[in-house]
Design a protein around this nucleic acid. Structure first.
Length: 700
RNA sequence: GGCGCGGUAGCUCAGGUGGUUAGAGCGUUGGAUUCAUAACCCAAAGGUCGGGGGUUCAACUCCCCCCCGCGCUACCA
């Protein structure tokens, strides 16, 4: 393994359009924090950067929803996220934001470098433009009828009903959501990064260079993308919210949010060194002594081959952090690329996907409000169950059981036992170590080896294993006490008891060191109770952290039990929130603009009968139907395979648009369109006459 | 459909360049114990390692096919 001089660790910039939930914590922030705290304990030269991602079309979108300005949105959520992270002990050296001038400057510089090196291509294409709003319309601002499922309110980038990804040009009857106008096509110029030019480099770097040290899910995902063939990707957008494209004749154009967001790591680092070197801290909060620094020192962390760059992200970000951003950095020429991207999978909640918008989530601020003083409990539960190799599951019952059976019963209990016994027998002072017996020697031996076990797991990004190894240290303590039974000896052999408690207390002191990366608040409390300064990792495993006669502090309970009622309340709250967010009447689509009778009369809608049906090969949505329309028998393709089987369609009456222009799909021509009604849950239902009518019956 | 990742004890998950009795925690059962937030400690029960083929002296571990879950992707006129 390559030896590195310093580390740059990033955690995915959270998007400032809403609160973030515990799934985000499990995906990136908690493991990143544990990793960095461990490196700091090793006295490594490390910087931990993060910040709010504040550009992109969804921010103005959210502003419209909340009836306010984009600026107000990002200010609100930036502060909320920053404060929640801090309250959870996630100790960034800098928590920046992409709306800051230094970030705009950095992003523009990088864009210009790529441009000046001739690495960007210019392309003119036709995009929708709203004449009244005098603005090109971002994909999200255009709605229209989905060409695939007929949903009348599909967005320009995606139809939320059928899930297909679209481009605005695909929409039928497009409308601007800004004004309701019909947008017109207008030519616009954009700058593209030809990703395909870097395929060879990516193959070399990832497929050859990181075949063994990257997680299988990350590596597989990258391979899949590379093998599928990369394409030019637009790095600019027509939008007024974002970073201006630093070129002449580029009014109204901003950098693509996914171009500027990862650069946020760089600008955050840059801001950090500017602030620390000038002594004016705004976003920087150095978590260790960086010594004397210069504003320019950010370059060491981004441009020196001896720096190990690690991105902590969730699996949804893999392509950006492993393909696009590295290509940007590599193409620029002066930057290093990540040594590892230990992306996690997703954490589900009580059997279902976590989703803020659907109300099925535990937001960071909700947890902090409901469980004050318990950040470590959440950290522990998430760590013990991180989605490292596959999606995992958070349940409140598991939360309770981890707290009660592990934090309270094993860790808290051991610390408490050792301290209480010392208070009882030795006036709360560390007793003298006498002659060691085999049990003592064995315990100290295990103690000595445990930090290495934890460290080894952490170096390999196996946080769950590391967390379990930490708990094993507390188990070791409990077993030691159970085996030596000092409470039975204190009348007959006080010297022996002194030795035993001396050893037990050394284990407690070690727990403070080992637990610090995982449970920083609890580690600090243990030190408080021991009346001890916090120590570094190099001291972990030592049998002499506490001197004989050292006076201990005031002890108390590290963790408290969580009752069933608390858990039940959370479950109720969760279900109530879901109901609130998903009212029975789902978001109804607004009425379309008025049409004349003649418009309607153009449609030839009639009832037909399905004569036969079969699943389209190589498709999982399409059914191929043979429909008797009365006047003819024709083939109609319909995207209903997820809702109806071929068998159950046969013999059914259907309503179809019979004079719709034929369209080829998957090599077969469809001559008509079956009408469906979609329920709130997204399920499609056939539109049928309430009594059987003859095939060909006209609907009017 | 294609591609990627996964499918191991009741639950949450480890593991393996193929090789003696497949692991942990929780849960369950039994025992021991009382210093400790009735916690700790010991022990036991519990798995045809998704299904079916194949390679091999030997496969849970390699190969092929199939099924299931998750994600990306194509198709819903």
């Amino acid at each position: 393994m390559k030896a590195f001089k310093r580390h740059t660790v990033t955690a995915a910039l959270p998007y400032a359009n809403g609160p973030k939930h515990i799934g985000h914590l499990a995906g990136a922030y908690i493991p990143a924090d544990v990793y960095v705290r461990y490196l700091r304990s090793l006295e490594k030269d490390v910087i931990f950067v993060c910040g709010s991602d504040e550009h992109g079309t969804a921010i103005p979108n959210q502003a419209v929803k909340e009836n306010t300005t984009p600026r107000a949105i990002i200010d609100k959520y930036h502060v909320q996220m920053r404060d929640c992270f801090k309250a959870l002990g996630i100790a960034f050296d800098v928590y920046h934001r992409t709306s800051e001038p230094i970030h705009h400057k950095t992003s523009q510089e990088i864009f210009l470098t790529l441009f000046n090196k001739g690495l960007l291509t210019e392309e003119v294409s036709e995009q929708y433009y709203d004449a009244d709003a005098k603005a090109f319309l971002a994909d999200r601002y255009i709605v229209g009828t989905c060409p695939k499922c007929g949903h009348p309110n599909a967005y320009g980038d995606q139809c939320e009903k059928c899930g297909s990804s679209l481009s605005p040009r695909d929409l039928i009857n497009p409308r601007s959501t800004l004004t309701g106008n019909v947008p017109v096509l207008r030519e616009t110029k954009h700058w593209y990064l030809p990703l395909e030019n870097y395929e060879g480099w990516l193959r070399e770097w990832i497929l050859k260079g990181h075949a063994t040290d990257w997680k299988t899910n990350v590596f597989g995902q990258c391979k899949s993308w590379i093998d599928a063939g990369l394409q030019p990707r637009a790095m600019t957008r027509d939008l007024d919210w974002g970073i201006k494209v630093p070129l002449p004749n580029a009014e109204g154009k901003v950098l693509y949010v996914w171009f500027d967001a990862p650069i946020g790591y760089v600008s955050a680092t840059r801001a950090f060194f500017e602030e620390v070197s000038s002594g004016k801290l705004e976003f920087a909060q150095p978590q260790r002594d960086f010594g004397t620094v210069k504003a320019d020192d950010w370059k060491k962390y981004w441009q020196d081959e001896e720096t190990k760059l690690v991105h902590f992200i969730g699996k949804d970000n893999i392509v950006f952090h492993c393909i696009i951003f590295p290509i940007m950095l590599h193409a620029h020429g002066e930057f290093i690329v990540p040594d590892n991207v230990p992306a996690n999978e997703f954490m589900n909640l009580e059997g279902d996907k976590m989703s803020t918008s659907r109300g099925w989530s535990i937001e960071m601020h909700e947890y902090l409000e409901d469980f004050p003083g318990k950040p470590d409990v959440l950290r522990y539960c998430l760590l013990a169950n991180l989605p490292e190799t596959k999606d995992s599951e958070f349940t409140w019952k598991d939360f309770q059981s981890r707290n009660n059976n592990e934090l309270v019963a094993i860790l808290g209990n051991f610390v408490n036992r050792a301290l209480v016994l010392t208070q009882k027998y030795f006036d709360n002072k560390v007793p003298a170590k006498g002659t060691l017996q085999p049990a003592d020697i064995a315990a100290l031996e295990s103690l000595k080896g445990q930090p290495a076990r934890i460290a080894q797991a952490l170096e390999l990004y196996k946080f769950r294993e590391a967390t379990a190894a930490l708990m094993d240290l507390a188990r070791l303590g409990n077993k030691y006490l159970a085996d030596t039974e000092p409470w039975k000896l204190h009348k007959t052999d006080p010297d022996r008891v002194a030795t035993i408690l001396h050893v037990a207390l050394q284990i407690v002191a070690n727990l403070a060191i080992a637990a610090e990366p995982f449970l920083p608040f609890s580690a600090a409390r243990i030190n408080e109770m021991l009346n001890l300064q916090s120590r570094l990792w190099k001291d972990a495993g030592s049998d002499s952290l506490l001197a004989e006669g050292h006076a201990l502090g005031v002890s108390g309970l590290l963790f408290e039990k969580i009752e069933d009622s608390v858990i039940e309340k959370q479950l109720e709250k969760l279900h109530a929130k879901k109901k609130l967010m998903n009212p029975v009447v789902a978001e109804l689509t607004p009425l379309k603009s008025e049409i004349t009778f003649d418009d309607f009369a153009k449609l030839d809608i009639r009832v037909g009968k399905v004569l036969s049906a079969e699943k389209m090969e190589k498709s999982n949505k399409l059914l191929k139907l043979l429909v008797d329309t009365g006047v003819d028998k024709r083939t109609v393709l319909s995207g209903i395979a997820l809702h109806y089987t071929a068998e159950e369609m046969v013999g059914k009456q259907v309503t179809l648009i019979a004079n719709l222009a034929p369209r080829k799909m998957m090599g077969i021509e469809s001559q008509g369109m079956i009408l469906m009604a979609e329920d709130a849950d997204g399920k499609l239902r056939l539109l049928q006459p309430n009594e059987v009518v003859m095939p060909g019956a006209v609907v009017s």
